[in-house]
């Protein structure tokens, strides 16, 4: 998959047929593997190529506002695509997935005794200011009546770094996107359904890219049956 992506980067520099264009995706970290999967299928069914860049939703939003050359923004929230539309930077906005937050741990966790398990331990979550999964984790903690003074919260910039802390053994508990679970290997998973407001992940077709046929084609592909299947298989709910 990565080999394919890098090959395409090289191929993008070579002369190609007039119709084949490139679409540059800005993807929130939680959706990275799903986006790479979508890119693969899209490339196989069209003449266009895809380049995937990723980061925290807040960082990508800041880059777009400062003129970053992205075509489609796959955000982890609904707020930032809405702001882009309001300021004229986005031509179209739609919900592409509903994110699912989970709590992972090394040892099995009793959902009724999370506070006891957390006591004095390290708990990693994404920074709620820039990462919607971090904001959802804060809501879940409130719902579980957890007091952040009783454990050591570790704030990092996105859920990708949260996963790194967990896999390298630097944290005992981690609030992650369900879509990341296949990367983790052995981990106990506690579902948090109903303990956080829906993580509505919206996509924005950026106004600067309306004339790019690859961006328009990818935008159409994003709401296709094929794309919906991939998104659901990766651990997301679909917007009705």
């Amino acid at each position: 998959m990565k080999i394919l992506a890098s090959l395409l980067v090289v191929l993008a520099a070579l002369p190609r047929p007039a119709l084949a264009e490139e679409v540059l995706l800005a993807v929130a970290s939680n959706f990275l593997t799903a986006a790479e999967n979508l890119a693969e299928v899209f490339e196989a069914t069209s003449d266009h190529s895809v380049v995937v860049a990723h980061g925290s939703t807040g960082a990508l939003y800041a880059q777009i506002v400062s003129g970053a050359p992205y075509d489609v923004f796959l955000s982890a929230d609904a707020e930032r695509p809405r702001l882009l539309a309001a300021s004229g930077l986005a031509a179209d906005v739609r919900t592409y997935a509903l994110g699912r937050l989970v709590l992972v741990s090394k040892a099995a966790l009793d959902p009724g005794a999370v506070a006891e398990a957390f006591a004095g331990r390290r708990v990693a979550l994404a920074d709620p200011l820039v990462a919607p999964y971090g904001a959802a984790a804060i809501s879940a903690m409130e719902s579980l009546r957890l007091d952040t003074a009783t454990f050591q919260p570790l704030l990092v910039t996105n859920v990708g770094q949260v996963a790194t802390l967990f896999v390298t053994g630097n944290t005992d508990f981690a609030f992650l996107a369900e879509a990341q679970l296949p990367l983790l290997g052995a981990a106990e998973v506690t579902a948090l359904d109903g303990r956080y407001p829906a993580i509505r992940q919206d996509a924005a077709l950026l106004a600067r890219s309306q004339a790019n046929p690859a961006a328009a084609a990818f935008w159409a592909f994003l709401s296709s049956e094929a794309a919906a299947e991939i998104i659901a298989a990766k651990g997301y709910d679909l917007a009705e």
Binding site: V9, L24, A53, Q63
Partner: peptide, 8 residues
């Protein structure tokens, strides 16, 4: 930023 092939 972190754009493959351009700034990565």
């Amino acid at each position: 930023g972190n754009i493959p092939g351009r700034t990565r």
